[in-house]
Design a binder for these strands. Structure first.
Lengths: 358, 358
DNA sequence: ATGAGAGCAGCAAGCGCTTTCTACGCGATA
DNA sequence: TATCGCGTAGAAAGCGCTTGCTGCTCTCAT
C-alpha cells in the first residue's frame, strides 16, 4: 500500500538506517550511496511518515501560532509574517529547518486557548507562538502558566508576540510586548494638544491586557492634562466592546447619548474606529469637523479610509517575523527574554481641533 | 521524565490497553475501571503522545486548511468558519471528533501549496481544505491533481472551497465552487443598466481561476449589451494586479490614463476597489458622481466604506463552515461532489448613473 | 448443576522511523 | 608486514501507542 523507508532501502540496496541518514542529512553518507537513495526515493514517490519519525526522534516539525481571531488582519498579518519565517524558505529543497507552521484560531476563548495548547503538546510541537493580548483571569493565567511551563519543560520553545510576559518570567519564554500603554498615552496627548476636552473612549473587551494597557495610557494622558475627572466620570465616557466594526458603531452611539458635547472619540483599534466613524456619519456629524476619531494598530485600510485615520502604528510584520525567528531559535532572545515593541503615533486626517474650542 | 500510557496504567492498576481504550472510548470498559483510569490520568497530568498514537492507529487528528493570504479577511473569514466546525465544539470535553485545524499560508505560491500538501501528507492529515482560486498552470494543475489523488488514496478527505473542481473529478474530492462568473456578469449588467458604456476592469493576478471567471462574467455582460468591442479594446480597458489595495490604486490611475472618459471601474475584489476609490479621490474625481466603482466579495468593511461599496456578496462564513463539515465527514457531499455557491449582487452607493449620459 | 454466552481486561505484536553501537574495508603509519 | 584509525554501512533496540485475539469471570437459561 504505502511506501515505507524499508521499501526505499530495498530498492537502493542499502539498509533503512542509511536511507534515514540520507533524508536527515546529519551523518556522513558516501555521495554515490546518497544518490542511489535519492533516486529510489523519487522513483518510489516516497513520503516520510511524520508520526513515526516524530515518535522515534521525540521531536516534531510542527510550530503552532495561536491567534484570537483569524479573520482580523491584525492577527493575520502577524501570523503571516511569523509563518513565512517558520515554513518559508522557498527553494531550500529538502534541507532541514523546514517546519510546518500552523495557525490556531482561539476565537478569544480561554478554553480553546488551553485546548489548542494541549493539542500542540500532544503533537510535541517544536514551538508555540501566542499572539495578541492575554485574558486577565487569575485562574486562566495560572492554568496558562502551568501549561506553558510544561511545554517549555518538554523542550517546546514559547514566544509571546504582542502579549505581556508571564507573571513569573520563565527563562524559556521569550516575550515581544507591544507598548500599548505608551501608544495609548501619546494618542490621547495628541488629542489633548489639539484642544479636546471631552473625549470618549471605546475600549476593547473587558479582562484583556491589551484593553487595559491602551486604556491606562489614555487615562494617564488625561490625568497628566488635569482632565482625569473622577472614576465615575471616566467610566461614563468609556464603553467596552469586542474588537469589531459593529461594536464601534454601537459604542459611538452610546457615547454620544451619554455626552452629546463630545468632541473626540478614541477607539480600541482601527476597526472599531471605522465603526465609530460610520455611526457619527449616520448622525450627520462630520469627522473631524465635528468629532475627531482615532484608532490603534494602523492596519492597511486605515490609511485609505475617508478621512484617513489618525492611529498608533504597530510594526506587526516586523514583530511577527521576529517571533517566527525566535520560535525557530534562529534569533537570540532579547535580554531578560523580554523586548518592548514600539507603538508610534501616526497623525492623519481624522483628528483636528475641536469645533468651537481650541 | 514524561508520563506515558504505561505509567497511567500502573497507577490505575490496569493494562496499557485498557487505558488506551478508556481514552479512545470505543470499546466497552466497566465504569469503575474507567473512573480509576481517568483519575490516574488526572493525577499524573498525562498527555497523549500524538505521534505515537498516530503511528499506531495510522490516522491523525490534523486537518489542514490552505489559504493564499492569511492577512486577507477573505481567507481569514473562510478559514475561521471552517476551523470552528473542525476543532470547535466547546465543552465536548475529551470526547472524540476533536481535530486540530491548522491553517497554512501559501502566499499564493504554487510551490508552497505543494510543499504544504506534502507536509500534511507526512502527518497523515485526516483532511485538507483548499480555499481560494487555483493557479492555472498545466504543470501545476497536474502536480496538484496527482498529489491530491495520492492524499485521497491514503484516506485524507479533500475539500475545495471557493475553487473549481479538479479537471478530472475525483469521487473523494468535494468542491464548493463560487459562482464568480455569474456574479461578475450580474455586477457589470448592473453598471450597463445604469447607462455606463466605458467601463474599466481591474483584474486579479494572471493565471488564477478566480481572476479569469470574474473577468469572463464581466465580458459576457459587456458582450450581451453589445459593448464588447474587440479583443484589443477589451485588453486596453483591463489591468491586472494582485489582490491588494495598492494594486487597485495603481490600476485605476493606469485605466484613467488609458481612457480618460471612463465612467465606471469594476475591481477584482473589494480591497482593490477601495484602492481604486483612493486613486480617484486623489485625482479630484468623485465616486460615484464622476466614476462609479464596484468590488467583489462583500467583505465586512465594504459596507462601511465611503461611499458604501456596490459589490457581489459571497457567503464566506457559510461556505467555510460547510467546507469544515465536509472535511469532518459530518455532512454528505453534494451530488457529484460539486456544489455551486451563489454570488449575489449587492447594490450600494458607490455606483450610480454616469455623469452626462444615462 | 452445568454449559453457553456476554462482558471485560490483558497479552503481545506491530506501526515506521531514529540512533547507538558494532563491523568492515582501506589507506596511512611505524 | 602488522597496526591503527578514519570513513561508512548495518543490526537491532526501542519510541509510546493501538488492537486483534485470547481468556477469565460472571450471569442466565436449560
Amino acid at each position: 500500500m504505502t511506501v515505507t523507508l524499508a521499501d526505499v532501502a530495498a530498492r537502493a540496496r542499502v539498509s533503512p538506517a542509511t536511507v534515514s541518514r540520507v533524508l536527515n542529512g546529519n551523518y556522513p553518507v558516501a555521495t554515490a550511496t546518497r544518490e542511489r537513495v535519492l533516486r529510489a526515493v523519487d522513483d518510489l514517490d516516497y513520503v516520510l511518515n511524520g508520526p513515526a519519525s516524530s515518535l522515534a526522534a521525540a521531536t516534531s516539525d510542527l510550530v503552532g501560532v495561536l491567534v484570537h481571531d483569524i479573520a482580523d488582519p491584525f492577527f493575520g498579518i502577524m501570523a503571516g509574517a511569523a509563518q513565512s519565517e517558520i515554513g518559508g524558505q522557498e527553494g531550500t529543497g529538502r534541507a532541514g529547518g523546514e517546519k510546518l507552521a500552523v495557525v490556531c484560531n482561539t476565537g478569544g476563548s480561554p478554553e480553546r486557548e488551553l485546548t489548542y495548547l494541549t493539542l500542540l503538546q500532544r503533537q510535541r510541537a517544536a514551538a508555540v507562538v501566542l499572539t495578541g493580548g492575554a485574558v486577565e483571569d487569575p485562574a486562566h493565567t495560572a492554568a496558562m502558566t502551568a501549561k506553558l511551563g510544561k511545554l517549555a519543560a518538554a523542550g517546546t520553545r514559547i514566544v509571546l508576540c504582542g502579549r505581556p510576559p508571564l507573571p513569573e518570567p520563565d527563562q524559556a519564554v521569550a516575550a515581544l510586548a507591544f507598548d500599548n500603554l505608551g501608544g495609548g498615552r501619546r494618542l490621547t496627548e495628541h488629542l489633548v494638544a489639539l484642544g479636546h476636552r471631552r473625549i470618549g473612549y471605546i475600549a476593547g473587551p473587558v479582562g484583556r491586557t491589551t484593553t487595559r494597557h491602551r486604556m491606562e495610557g489614555h487615562r494617564a494622558a488625561l490625568a497628566a492634562a488635569g482632565l482625569g475627572g473622577g472614576a465615575a466620570e471616566q467610566d461614563r465616557l468609556t464603553v467596552h466592546g469586542p474588537y469589531d466594526r459593529r461594536s464601534g458603531y454601537d459604542a459611538a452611539a452610546e457615547l454620544l447619548h451619554r455626552e452629546p458635547a463630545l468632541t473626540a472619540i478614541v477607539a480600541a483599534n482601527d476597526t472599531v474606529a471605522l465603526g465609530a466613524c460610520a455611526a457619527l456619519r449616520d448622525r450627520g456629524l462630520r469627522v473631524p469637523g465635528d468629532v475627531s476619531v482615532a484608532g490603534f494598530d494602523d492596519l492597511p485600510f486605515s490609511a485609505d479610509a475617508v478621512p484617513a485615520l489618525t492611529t498608533v502604528r504597530l510594526p506587526l510584520v516586523e514583530a511577527g517575523a521576529r517571533a517566527g525567528r525566535l520560535a525557530m531559535g534562529r534569533e537570540a532572545p532579547p535580554p531578560g527574554g523580554i523586548a518592548t515593541v514600539p507603538a508610534d503615533l501616526v497623525v492623519r486626517s481624522s483628528t483636528a481641533r475641536p469645533p468651537g474650542g481650541g
